[in-house]
Design a protein around this nucleic acid. Structure first.
Length: 564
RNA sequence: CGAGGUGUAGCGCAGUUGGUAGCGCACCUGUUUUGGGAACAGGGGGUCGCAGGUUCAAGUCCUGUCACCUCGACCA
């Protein structure tokens, strides 16, 4: 790449409409450019990084005998209606119509088409196992795109699928994929943790996520280090920590709580410990109204509730629904004499003489006990908190934040049954295929790498991913000797390595060139300047404090060593 | 979806009580510079998000609309 000629630009200042460090660095270094909310151009330097990440992924996929193919991004809507996922995805699917008014969608993920592709090959047990993958643009109409390339509406994902005869085969395929994923993220030099995650509505057997550790991560990871426990907050189980209270049970009575609606207000008004309260939250779950009770200082874990009920959608009930269900305005719901299903968090079973809403304006009940009402179900429905005991009892958990850069999913046979993907076994019986699905967000990896690897000057790419691996900077382009040495090195390095080499032959001041190379994260910088009088040039690695003088004739060897 | 904010040159911004648009950076020309984002001089670039309306006159006032951003989507 020759800067005096090729497409190249940088911005000196942060742009306003980027809300993350990685987004700003990538925009400022001229690698990406936002065109709409959550939609980006991938400019030449950015695309180089993408390609390098893709190639690492491709090598590891090929190594485990997954075959690459390419699916369409635009898919007839009926494909998702048949699998039952049109509803599951709902508004998050981009939908459009062709000129004959036939409905299409832009694929958010491709299980359906891969199952269809598998059907072409899989008829007999002799055809299994097999595995396919692709790199493909996915479309998801996120309600709130955020953080540069991290939460976007159009993105390239590597998705792989395995097809096996039985669970033992699936376990094997999953383990191979899992190891390949570790190889990939190790090679990408991402600092990651693997957590257990929600298997979602398809009722898969196991889901694990590869999470890049990062402060702006949108997922909360629940960690207990001594036992190696790691889970997404969504599914981290809680255990009952307190002993059954030994207080004598009192009879409940009604209390005036004027103007006190929120839990904080009631706590303040009654001057009681928040742990003496039970919050009753009214939810609309798949169109039905439920009351969920958790201790005053706890929060409902909606994922757990969905799983418990086998439901798809959960949201707080509207004001009208609350009034209809509790016969009281919002703020005074309680479990006593409530005529809707009540789901009680298990922690409440050890409480006595607690405080609940009275389903009347400005009233709460105190000294309420379990015998005073009848819950429909008792279960673990609360969010675990930092410091709570880990479900395995090994110790208190701590929280980290992560960016989900990959996931691995044992789907089981549920999917094959829905998609009618069966094979004939040795006994001529039809058996559903055991599937696994495995995703990696390519640009998300790129963003995570930048979030994790930058300094005040710019991006610090791993050397195998840097869009520019060697940058030759000519200090003074009017100095014929400097130009000659630099050009010679440029030709020599291009001829003798497969690295991405850049020559900065612009008529700019040294500071401009240095800053640009640091911003874009050129891995090794060769400075051709006054040192050539002694037959030397300077070599500096991005992020290092000092540079090294190297004899001109030794540079190629040295560079080869560095990138060996 | 709810609340708030912002749309003026490639980027960041200013623009008073309405009077036909400016600053910094970037860009072009020239001169002097040349090892960490140069200096001076000259210059180019904008249907002020879009559509209506009020007015002799609208970046500015009014209405609508679109886009982008932030917060919330956990309140009982």
């Amino acid at each position: 790449m020759r800067l005096s000629r090729d497409y190249f630009f940088t911005l000196r200042d942060d742009v306003k409409n980027e809300d993350s460090t990685s987004g700003n660095l990538l925009v400022r270094s001229g690698m990406i450019k936002k065109t709409s909310s959550g939609i980006y151009m991938m400019l030449p330097l950015g695309l180089r990084v993408m390609n390098k990440i893709e190639n690492i992924v491709r090598e590891e996929m090929n190594a485990i005998h997954s075959l690459e193919l390419s699916m369409p991004a635009m898919i007839a809507e009926e494909v998702y209606i048949e699998s039952g996922r049109r509803e599951t995805f709902g508004n998050s699917m981009f939908a459009l119509k062709d000129r004959f008014n036939k409905p299409f969608v832009l694929g958010p993920t491709h299980e359906e088409l891969f199952a269809a592709a598998a059907k072409m090959h899989v008829h007999s047990y002799k055809d299994l196992p097999t595995s396919l993958y692709q790199f493909q643009t996915k479309f998801r109409d996120e309600p709130r795109p955020r953080f540069g390339l991290i939460r976007v509406r159009e993105f390239v994902m590597k998705d792989a699928y395995t097809f096996d005869r039985d669970l033992a085969g699936l376990d094997l395929a999953y383990d191979k994929m899992f190891q390949a994923y570790k190889n990939i993220f190790d090679r990408l030099e991402i600092d990651y943790v693997i957590v257990r995650a929600d298997t979602g509505v398809m009722g898969g057997l196991l889901s694990e996520e590869f999470q890049a550790v990062c402060d702006i991560g949108e997922d909360i990871l629940v960690i207990e280090e001594s036992s190696g426990y790691a889970s997404n907050l969504e599914i981290a189980k809680c255990i009952i920590e307190d002993e059954v209270s030994d207080e004598p049970e009192l009879s409940y009575e009604i209390k005036d709580t004027p103007q006190a609606k929120t839990i904080e207000e009631v706590v303040a008004f009654l001057n009681e410990d928040i742990k003496k309260f039970v919050k009753t939250l009214i939810y609309n779950i798949d169109g039905n109204i439920y009351a969920l009770c958790v201790r005053g200082d706890h929060e409902v874990n909606e994922t757990k509730v969905l799983k418990l009920l086998g439901a798809n959608e959960i949201e707080m009930a509207s004001e009208e629904e609350v009034i209809a269900a509790t016969k009281a305005p919002v703020g005074f719901a309680g479990p006593i004499d409530l005529e809707i299903p009540i789901i009680l968090d298990q922690e409440i079973t050890v409480m006595k003489n607690f405080i609940v809403g009275a389903n009347q304006v400005d009233k709460h009940f105190i000294n309420v006990n379990l015998s005073d009402f009848t819950p429909t179900q008792v279960a673990d429905i609360r969010k675990i908190r930092e410091g709570d005991m880990c479900e395995n009892g090994a110790g208190p958990v701590k929280f980290m934040r992560g960016i989900e850069v990959g996931n691995t999913f044992k789907l089981g046979d549920g999917y094959a049954k829905a998609m009618d993907l069966y094979y004939t076994d040795q006994n001529n019986k039809l058996i559903p295929v055991q599937m696994g699905s495995y995703g990696i967000g390519i640009a998300r990896c790129m963003a995570a790498i930048v979030e994790q690897n930058h300094d005040k000057h710019g991006i610090l790419w791993p050397k195998h991913l840097a869009p520019i691996q060697v940058a030759i900077v000519i200090i003074n382009t009017k100095n014929a000797e400097q130009v000659e040495v630099a050009e010679k090195l440029y030709a020599e390095l291009n001829a003798n390595t497969n690295l991405d080499i850049l020559i900065d032959d612009r008529d700019e001041r040294a500071g401009v060139k240095f800053n640009d190379m640091e911003l874009i994260g050129a891995y090794a910088r060769i400075t051709v300047g006054r040192g050539i009088a002694d037959g030397k040039v300077e070599l500096k690695i991005a992020g290092a404090d000092i540079s090294e003088d190297i004899a001109i004739e030794d540079i190629t060897t040295k560079i080869k060593e560095i990138f060996a």
